[in-house]
């Protein structure tokens, strides 16, 4: 999961009100609802599920450049539906939003695209796999894909190869988001080897690293009192990985998946995982925690998670923080951190 973003957003001025972050707490009348014990079918489920209100294809990558520097990369496509039934052409109820970013230790480049469904400007096709918005594309086959994005200041051209199985979070892919009914379908491909070129304002940089793709869809993933989340995807030395998140609301709700090097998963219920902010960064008046203590005692995890670049703020229609992190403490490693709901100066 990662409760990753949400979306949907589009364009709304999001108030952290009773609707939860980015409207994700709205009641999803007429849309399909995730149910326990899902049966996934591939490649169809790599494609879009337009009977659900929101969905995303969310890829992050920790990279090392030929210059020896650490880089982070993000490629995300969000889908939201304005109405349960879809129509042809401009009457389509589907809206698409793309976010792309490259993070270096001292810079953070972000760009965004918006598109209507129904006319071919954006979409996701399951077979042969392609997810696209404008000239940005995540083009299959799914296990050996290419990835591209461009913006006014930067761009990248990457190739990826999946070296492990898909990973299903929560209860075999049914991921709870609150003590009540909120849930989503959630699986990942955390085993992509990625290589390619970052086009930065000053130069092109050849990079190599690993990428993590999250797939998630739902119709009401947040409870109405939940105002944001902190989500961690960590790759530890030795090959194990940890996905953990906490949803901030009247009560904090946490969830985690421990992934062995061979892809075997162990889900952890609410309360097993914890994340404690140790330090905040002031980003133009917003107080954003960029140094964390993360614990999963059942697996002996007690690490600090520190942003490679604390200023990885996503200045997009729906603003949030997303960037690469370093892991130290009981384990070493690297990963990605996403934090939403910090847009207001006092939103904690």
């Amino acid at each position: 999961m990662n409760v990753k973003l949400f979306i949907i957003l589009l364009i709304l001025p999001f108030h952290l009100d009773a609707q939860g972050f980015a409207g994700l707490g709205q009641t999803p009348e007429g849309f399909a609802q995730p149910a326990p014990d899902p049966i996934f079918s591939f490649p169809q489920d790599h494609g879009a599920h337009s009977d659900y209100r929101i969905e995303w294809w969310y890829l992050t990558a920790n990279l090392t450049g030929e210059d020896g520097l650490e880089y982070g990369l993000q490629w995300t496509l969000f889908r939201t539906s304005l109405a349960p039934e879809d129509k042809e052409g401009w009457a389509s109820s589907q809206l698409w939003m793309g976010h792309a970013a490259v993070t270096t230790p001292d810079a953070h480049y972000v760009t965004e695209r918006l598109a209507r469904g129904g006319v071919g400007q954006a979409g996701v096709r399951a077979d042969p796999f392609e997810a696209w918005i404008d000239d940005w594309a995540f083009t299959g086959p799914f296990d050996r894909a290419t990835l591209r994005a461009t913006g006014p200041a930067f761009g990248y051209d990457m190739t990826m190869q999946a070296n492990g199985p898909l990973v299903f979070h929560g209860d075999a892919g049914y991921s709870r988001k609150s003590a009540n009914d909120q849930a989503s379908y959630y699986y990942s491909q955390p085993y992509f080897q990625i290589t390619g070129t970052l086009h930065l304002p000053d130069n092109d940089v050849r990079v190599v690293g690993d990428a993590w793709l999250d797939r998630e869809w739902s119709s009401q993933p947040l409870a109405s009192d939940q105002t944001g989340w902190d989500w961690f995807s960590l790759s530890l030395k030795g090959g194990a990985k940890l996905m953990g998140f906490q949803l901030r609301g009247d009560d904090t709700y946490t969830s985690a998946t421990w992934i062995e090097a061979d892809g075997t998963t162990t889900p952890f219920p609410n309360g097993a995982f914890s994340a404690l902010p140790l330090g905040v960064t002031d980003i133009e008046g917003r107080k954003v925690p960029t140094l964390w203590q993360v614990q999963l005692p059942d697996k002996g995890i007690d690490v600090t998670v520190e942003a490679v670049n604390p200023n990885a703020w996503m200045e997009t229609s729906v603003p949030y923080w997303e960037g690469p992190v370093r892991v130290n403490g009981s384990h070493q490693g690297r990963g990605y951190l996403e934090m939403t709901g910090y847009d207001g100066v006092t939103s904690q």
């Binding site: 949907i8 589009l10 364009i11 709304l12 401009w90 009457a91 809206l95 598109a115 209507r116």
Partner: peptide, 25 residues
């Protein structure tokens, strides 16, 4: 097309999802 129109082209920012939904339908 409200989503791709450069700022200043559309009559005003569509302040709410319902305004955008109304316009596009």
């Amino acid at each position: 097309e409200p989503l791709t129109a450069p700022g200043g082209l559309a009559p005003r920012a569509f302040g709410t999802v319902s305004a955008l939904a109304g316009f596009s339908t």
